[in-house]
Simulated assay, not measured.
Amino acid sequence: MSTQRPAPAVPTSVFITGAGGFIGRTLAARLRELGATVTGVDLVADPENGIVQGTTTDPSTWAHALEGVEAVVHTAAIVSTVAPTAAAWEVNVLGTKKVLDASVAAGVGRFVHLSSIAAYGWGFPKFVTEDYPARVTGGVSTYVDTKTNSEQVVLANAHRGTEVTIVRPADVYGPGSVWVREPLAMVEANQMLLPEGGRGVFDAIYIDNFVDAMVLLLAADAAAVDGQIFNFGEELELTCAEYFGELASWKGGKVKTLPIKVAAPALTVVGAVQRRLGMKSELGPALMHMLNRDALVSNEKARKVLGWEPAVSYDDGIARSKQWALNEGLI
């Protein structure tokens, strides 16, 4: 494992959709450190950081900001396994097409689309590589299905003058991540439930390591990555019981487990009731299936093509996440 963060020559101007989100803002900060001018769009404007207000479903209000931009990184999405299908499709699929169209029209040279390892579905070989078929869930998870559909949109619109690349991140954790905030909230609510004794794989990648991989991708020769798909994971042999058990211990709580044949239908009912009552809830069968995956993605391609190696160890990453939670008063 390298301890030195890469600092290559990156594009001089980068535009990020979802620039105010966990990944977007962290990537933007690193690109600025490397000398890039970074702008973007998000649901909430941040003029000090060049972020305009807007949505991916209507780029007409912000497409002018793409003029002169060298690369677009598309992170904006509805990240929910229980979002209504129509809403998830409009943002994650049709929105991706609209952002790509706006990028092509503005003459942007590079378009990097953030998909997810969810595109492989829930059952795939250990250390799966990018050439393995994508797989939808047939409506069980709107996130999996629409992320998979969004990849087809990007690849179908290649060779239009803008070079396209798809990134499939593993489970990106770190200070401020949903993979830290939500489990802690679920532990506090006594709702942290794992299927099958927590034997499923948590395919972790620390946020700084993910950003480093993105930086190397943006710095790579465009022709070498045009039309390519890249996994970004750390290949850690980490179970859900180990990861979520660690977070639960921060609050003095415990993780419950049930057989998936019991947990999935039970959470279908519980989650539906909570959402009807106006509560924010991701509880449902898709969550249980996701936490029951038994394989990791391979990062061999990222190593060979981009020269990427994680700079932050898991022990350091989880320690930084705990310190953030302490600072935020979450534990």
Rank of each mutant, 00 (worst) to 15 (best):
S2L: 02
R5Y: 09
P11G: 03
F15T: 04
T17S: 13
A19C: 14
G20Y: 07
L27I: 06
L31D: 13
D42P: 07
L43A: 07
D46F: 10
P47Y: 07
V52Q: 10
Q53G: 13
T55E: 10
A65K: 14
V72G: 02
V73T: 04
T75I: 15
T75R: 03
S80H: 13
A83F: 12
L100F: 12
V108C: 01
V112F: 05
H113Q: 14
S116K: 06
S116Q: 09
Y120K: 06
Y120W: 10
P125E: 03
T129K: 12
P133F: 13
G138C: 09
G139D: 04
V140H: 04
V140D: 01
Q152K: 10
V153P: 00
V154D: 09
T162P: 07
E163F: 11
V164G: 01
A170N: 07
D171A: 15
R181Y: 12
V187K: 08
N190R: 15
Q191E: 14
L194M: 12
G197W: 08
R199T: 15
N209D: 13
F210R: 02
V215A: 03
A224Y: 04
G227C: 04
N231A: 01
F232V: 13
E234F: 08
E235W: 02
E242D: 15
G245Y: 14
A248G: 02
A248L: 04
S249Q: 13
K251N: 02
K261S: 14
V262I: 15
A263R: 03
L267F: 15
G278R: 02
S281D: 07
E282R: 11
H289S: 07
M290L: 14
L291Y: 09
A295R: 01
K304L: 09
W308D: 01
P310F: 05
A311G: 13
D315M: 09
